[in-house]
């Protein structure tokens, strides 16, 4: 865990409310693992007051990338930061994805909306040749990182809620369809998901119904991000657990929705 000031190399709008920030942070980049996050002081003043957690989108050489959606005052502030500015970061934080046993499996990644963010770093790390990603978006203009994923994954499937591209409907419905025709045994399949809560809940239900291994990455409001304040807890079979410390990645079997 480090608290450092890093230089913004670029901070640009990708499309709509989605932004992409590249930081020069060799020491953080070296220490980061897929699924971990950074706690960013988006403004030097008191507005917003608390840091904002962002998953690590990608690590490339000494550079760290953050993909984020502008949803409120804090993220709007972040989007105003210019290249050359310095950003106060704490990271890498939390427990990331466990992909040790994924190398020989059929790996299915499911990203909903901005939830694709941590999956790019993960998809690079997993060496399995048998990877598939389902990218879900509300409409075709909001599909994120299709090209980037194609660099690491041969099979990229798209779903849109309004049917403007790819599968028409929820990304979890697409997942259900694919699982029902999946020829491999359940033990050979590993799911990784990140996205809005209802989506993750559905992924957990699907995993439970078909007895599949699944890990999901959660998002919560955080006080400290380092395990001290106990503010970001979620309900699990082992009691309340901190998203910032025991998470943000949890086993689907463990979570109570």
């Amino acid at each position: 865990m480090l608290q450092i000031k890093v230089k913004i190399i670029s901070n640009k709008r990708l499309k709509g409310n989605y932004w992409h920030c590249v930081l020069s942070a060799p020491s953080l980049a070296r220490a980061s693992r897929p699924g971990q996050f950074l706690n960013v002081r988006v403004s030097d003043g008191l507005k917003p007051f608390l840091r904002r957690p962002f998953s690590i989108h990608n690590v490339c050489g000494g550079r760290l990338e953050i993909l984020y959606e502008v949803v409120g005052g804090g993220t709007r502030n972040f989007s105003c930061r210019k290249s050359g500015d310095h950003l106060d970061l704490i990271g890498p934080l939390g427990k990331g994805f466990d992909y040790r046993y994924a190398q020989n499996k059929r790996v299915i990644l499911i990203g909903g909306g901005i939830g694709v963010a941590p999956l790019l770093f993960l998809s690079r790390a997993i060496k399995s040749m048998d990877k598939l990603i389902l990218i879900g978006a509300r409409t075709k203009g909001q599909i994120l990182c299709e090209k980037e994923f194609k660099n690491f994954i041969s099979d990229v499937k798209i779903s849109t809620d309004d049917g403007s591209r790819g599968f028409s409907g929820r990304v979890t419905d697409l997942l259900k369809n694919l699982i029902s025709i999946e020829p491999r045994s359940k033990k050979e399949i590993q799911l990784y998901a990140c996205g809005p809560k209802p989506m993750l809940k559905e992924v957990c239900n699907i995993a439970k119904a078909h007895n599949l291994q699944a890990q999901v990455s959660l998002e919560e409001h955080m006080g400290c991000g380092i395990g001290a304040c106990l503010g970001c807890v979620v309900k699990t079979k082992n009691g309340l657990r901190r998203v910032c410390k025991e998470g943000p990645v949890f086993d689907a079997q463990e979570l109570i929705w």
Binding site: F49, G74, G223, C229, L230, G231, C232, V234, K235
Partner: peptide, 16 residues
């Protein structure tokens, strides 16, 4: 302790 949500940001501060 109490059920989540346990914290939120407020102007120049937070609630817990």
């Amino acid at each position: 302790g109490n059920p989540p949500a346990r914290t939120c940001e407020t102007p120049s501060g937070m609630l817990n």
